[in-house]
């Protein structure tokens, strides 16, 4: 389990994340939603140790992340940021192979190769595995990065706006894969996501943030609710149930 306790982050004098506590359930998808500037990405980055926190602690299986060895942590938790700007020229397969670095330190064993091949197959990337990353379309590239995180074979996977700049088809494709990862492989996934309907249809739990604080959190049914969302977004969002799914009509 990942537990976040009283975590705070300031930039200059501005408090971006303000005394946030929450816990993330294993084997489920948890989505962070909230308006721009709510502190979603900052919180995710702190949980994944990409940035340091000014106060509070983040515990992974009871151990504070700051006290874990960096390499061991990389076998437990992986993170993918929204701006994947890699300046190096890599093929898909080479990128995915980097996911095995925490285990092999660069020298791939047959076992590592098996993981890499499996991740490529899982993300349906076999045909383009020798293509360079910069030759891929947005959706393909995002899948390649997720394949790398898969090869890393961590229990926890943190994704910062994985649907950014993707069209509907590719967004749905990515979300379905994430769902499969949870159901077939028992992974725990945390997402930052903008569209409440994607959050509603594919996640198990939702944490709504506002002004650096947790506005409310709970199951999808609890959060996708006109009254709760009014608090978060300051607008009225009627909720319709279509095909058993709760859809917010915010237009």
């Amino acid at each position: 389990m990942v537990e976040v306790k009283h975590v705070t982050k300031r930039y200059g004098g501005v408090i971006v994340v303000d005394d946030v506590s929450l816990s993330i359930t294993k084997g489920a998808i948890t989505s962070f939603i909230g308006p721009n500037g709510a502190g979603k990405s900052t919180l995710l980055s702190m949980i994944s140790r990409l940035i340091s926190k000014d106060a509070g602690e983040v515990l992974i299986e009871g151990k504070e992340i700051g006290s874990c060895k960096s390499n061991e942590l990389a076998r437990k938790i992986s993170v993918l940021k929204q701006s994947n700007h890699i300046s190096v020229r890599l093929t898909v397969k080479e990128l995915v192979s980097f996911g095995r670095f925490p285990y092999s330190q660069g020298k791939l064993t047959p076992e590592d190769r098996a993981f890499v091949d499996e991740a490529i197959a899982y993300m349906d990337l076999q045909e383009m595995q020798d293509k360079y990353i910069d030759q891929l379309s947005g959706g393909q590239r995002q899948r390649a990065y997720i394949a790398m995180v898969m090869a890393q074979d961590t229990e926890y996977i943190l994704l910062d706006e994985p649907l950014n700049n993707l069209d509907m088809k590719h967004s749905v494709q990515i979300m379905k894969v994430l769902r499969r990862l949870v159901e077939e492989k028992g992974k725990t996934i945390v997402l930052v996501i903008h569209d409440i309907n994607f959050a509603s249809c594919y996640s198990d739990y939702i944490v709504a943030l506002k002004n650096g604080r947790v506005a409310s959190s709970g199951t999808v049914d609890e959060i996708i609710d006109t009254a709760v969302l009014r608090d978060v977004y300051d607008m009225d969002i009627p909720i319709e149930t279509i095909g058993g799914r709760k859809i917010g009509v915010y237009f």
């Binding site: 960096s70 390499n71 076998r75 980097f98 670095f101």
Partner: peptide, 9 residues
């Protein structure tokens, strides 16, 4: 970010 994710201090 990638380097930290892959377990480098």
């Amino acid at each position: 970010d990638e380097a930290i994710n892959l377990g480098i201090n």
